[in-house]
Design a protein around this nucleic acid. Structure first.
Lengths: 218, 218
DNA sequence: CTTGCTAATCACCGATCGGTGACAGATTGG
DNA sequence: CCAATCTGTCACCGATCGGTGATTAGCAAG
């Protein structure tokens, strides 16, 4: 820039940027936050040590020191994931009385659909899960599925699926449908020819989903 | 290995590797084949100019010359995709008489499920679609959905969905479920707690899928 | 054989990647 | 006050990335 001559010897009296305090806990948190933010906003494609360090505004060496590298950092994200899920998906029944297994699954479907739509980090992780099978993503996947299974179990209460229906397989299909449609919509606003832009589109999707659930469980 | 001393001065009389013939068409095809193979086997993560050139056993410069770079190459893959789909998914009804829309959708679901399970390239492309929104993947996505839509339209014949059902939305859910469950199984042999390893597991998944279809369309 | 044309290769560029060793500044215990 | 420890920064490494001239090598027509 102008005036960048070396002769001036002003000792940078007070650098406008406030000095970074020496605080390990805060730095660790900043790194973790930056990692989650980066993963949520940019996806797993360019997720690496350098990017996280840039995002956290610190040296990448600290990531190695405090988390033992990217693997450890991802693991820390996974640990966070548990509470994350429990914070974002309601545990109660929303004031409804779930009388039948169909009631339960309809409600679970809607809650999961909305939660996933509202959670970019979780979406990126799901996309990562179906794209790679590294150690990193396996850890994340495990944490996610465990948290999810726990939530479902808590919601289920004492309700049991009707006889003659392989509920595990059917539910896997339903959750798979939700995950894929939300992922597809997040990147291209559509899925299998169905436009998913505004709330009205999502209303149609939700209705179709409920119809599917009711078609199986009544 | 043994005997690899540098003193021997045999002028490599006849390098075992046969000399590459000067043949533009063949080279172009080799590049395209290598690209498809790489994408199918390694995924889109490490899919790049250098990797394709290595796989094709030629210089990357030729990819720029013949395809105008990676974008053009991906476009060529997309063009291939159309015939690819039509080759791999049967157009007939398998000797069945599809009397109802439910019959049709059940058959389409099974065909699509099997086709996707058997086609690693298509799987990688689907995973790519939900992970990124670059120009490249958009081209591929468009080619895929167009080929798929054409196939469905051809199979549909004159059958129409029952009144009172948003078939477009429901079918999007069904296809989303198939895609996600196949992708998840391909990388981790499971989906939403459902194990998907052997044929028996897939039988259960197929049954669940049919039950869902029949639940909606009867 | 010579002359063009073109297929194909080589060499190199700057940028970025993951990873590491050395060092500087602050804090703390003795 | 000194020394050890901890936090943070910097410089550098080799490898790989996408991308681009310049060059070599084979083929065919004259």
């Amino acid at each position: 820039m102008a005036g960048a001559n070396a002769a001036v010897k002003i000792p940078v009296e007070m650098p406008v940027v406030e000095k970074r305090v020496r605080n390990r806990a805060a730095t660790q948190q900043a790194i973790l936050d930056a990692a989650k933010r980066l993963l949520a906003e940019e996806g797993f494609q360019n997720f690496g040590i350098n990017a996280v360090a840039r995002g956290a505004g610190c040296d990448k060496q600290l990531i190695y020191r405090y988390y033992g590298g990217l693997n450890g950092l991802v693991e820390a994200i996974g640990t966070d994931l548990g509470s994350w899920v429990n914070d974002r998906i309601p545990d109660d029944t929303g004031g409804m009385f779930l009388l039948t297994y169909g009631d339960l699954m309809e409600r679970l479907s809607m809650l999961f659909l909305d939660a996933l739509r509202a959670d970019p980090l979780m979406r990126r992780i799901v996309a990562w899960e179906v794209s790679e099978n590294s150690e990193q993503v396996r850890r994340l996947s495990e944490a996610r599925s465990k948290a999810l299974a726990g939530w479902i179990e808590r919601m289920r209460g004492s309700l049991v699926p009707p006889k003659g229906v392989d509920a595990q397989a059917v539910n896997a299909m339903i959750f798979a449908a939700i995950q894929h449609i939300v992922l597809a919509a997040a990147v291209s606003d559509q899925c299998a020819g169905l436009t998913l832009k505004n709330g009205k589109d999502w209303e149609k999707a939700a209705t179709a989903l409920k119809r599917i659930v009711r078609g199986v469980y009544g």
